[in-house]
Design a protein around this nucleic acid. Sequence first.
DNA 1: TATAGAATTGACGTAAACGTAAAAGGTGCG
DNA 2: CGCACCTTTTACGTTTACGTCAATTCTATA
Lengths: 156, 156
Amino acid sequence: MTMKLVSPGEAAANTNDIPAEAGEEFVRIGEMAKKYGVTLRTLRFYEDKGLLNPHRDGSTRLYTRRDKARLKLILLGRKVGFSLRDVKQMMDLYDPTGTNTKQLRLTLDKSEKQLARLQKQRALIDDAINELSTSMTAVRQMLVERTAPPQASAAG
Amino acid sequence: MTMKLVSPGEAAANTNDIPAEAGEEFVRIGEMAKKYGVTLRTLRFYEDKGLLNPHRDGSTRLYTRRDKARLKLILLGRKVGFSLRDVKQMMDLYDPTGTNTKQLRLTLDKSEKQLARLQKQRALIDDAINELSTSMTAVRQMLVERTAPPQASAAG
DNA sequence: TATAGAATTGACGTAAACGTAAAAGGTGCG
DNA sequence: CGCACCTTTTACGTTTACGTCAATTCTATA
């Protein structure tokens, strides 16, 4: 008794021969993954973590543009260094019927903290770069000393 | 028949009442940890990974200045972002009887790669900072719009 | 001797974000 | 009909550098 929710044209998508119909309602996991440069595993993982909620045709996941919007947000969050937990917290507060003030405030709050973290990280990296550069100079110097023939010693 | 290798003066070290005798041959793990700001677990972990090799008095670890030198190197390596594996590879090549040319070359090689990684990381972080800042501006703007009363609409 | 403090080994836990089988079901095409 | 693909769920594995008990032992001191 499983209903066939597959719209006409879906069948073709199976072999990835997707016509350029821009109005695709649903895409399946493979196309979704290709479109956003993630793996199937990633999409399932995000779903498991409650970050995505694709529809189902039987057991097959069907992603809408709503899911695409969410995925974009996830990827942006990931890029700026948020954990998936953070991203979820922020997205969970989204309410299409309200002003989302709370969501925006939380997002801003988390963003400020994340910005501070990023700046601290940059400082640490700069430190590391300096230390490493210094050390490299020393190592090069040691190599030169060990490579150069003795200058004016008895071994000449 | 376990031999007592404890030198006179060691006993006092137990309660951390170490006199200011600068010429301490051995220190135990607690003092070592305190001296370098690491935990006991860390020192044992480093030993387990072959990075340290303290002497033993029975089962008690005794660290010499050689171990201290090695630990300093480990901490420096860690600071500049090397993995413990890398640090070990470099330290394993140390030969007190030779010129250590191979060791120095390997170190330099790894350092160059690490430097490149650090610079790439810094670029990524800068990107993230920019994206995040931009996003924060947008969020602030949305908050303002939702907070401010309607300007000149029918809802006035 | 009782107690407190230091030390030991062993071993499971943690964090993040997936990777990687494994075993199986569905589907269109030739 | 059978192959080639796509998809599913389940679940353990990976990486790094330790954290956190747990059970035990050793030692010195009051």
